[in-house]
Amino acid sequence: MSFITFCENIAKILSKYWQVFLIEGVSYTLLLSAITVFFGAILGSLLALGKMSRLKLLRGVITGFVEIIRGTPILLQLYFGYFIIPMAVPFLNLTDFQAISIALIINSAAYVSEVIRSGIQAVDHGQVEAARSLGLNGRQTMLHIILPQAIKNILPALGNEFIMIIKETSLASTFFIGDLMTSYLKVKGATWLNLECLLIVGVIYFVITFTLSKVVAAFERRMRAGE
């Protein structure tokens, strides 16, 4: 196969199937990633708070959960979620997309909780002491002194988590739920042009993550400049 035919094939695939990649695939991948990061951040914040609580049992449970998520492959977790989540809540009649979203959220929450916890703990302890010495209570100190400073550490890291998730959602194609990697499987199945389809999908992934990482970096610079 010559390079010319290769390029011609790509052009043919794109002219016929561009909607499958760019509309369906990209939108499902971005939607899945956005849902994952959004709910993952909420659940992750709760986990982070729990991990800093005074309740030893709660801390232990959360630490165990985070270690399990970090210590097992995400593909295995997605399989688990795919089978177990619909079984656990049969009355909700979850679609595959929803079950996989939940599995991804759980995975992301574990990582995000560490991002948030380390962002909070990176704030100099002298800040807590100064606030408490003025008479602020623990909650006021957290809300008005610690979190506004921690957010500068956390937001860029969350942006990077979003980029990671975009790549990880490709694993969801195992369950054929419509993301960009599923588009590859579909078009490859219809055209038998394996490499061409892979290249198209790869370029799309790269363009998305590269653009986003530049956006995150610019955002980070602006926040640092504000100090």
Partner: peptide, 14 residues
């Protein structure tokens, strides 16, 4: 603590 002001070695301004 509201009645006891404290000044730290490392300032700890916000």
């Amino acid at each position: 603590r509201q009645k006891m002001g404290m000044v730290f070695q490392l300032f700890n301004v916000f």
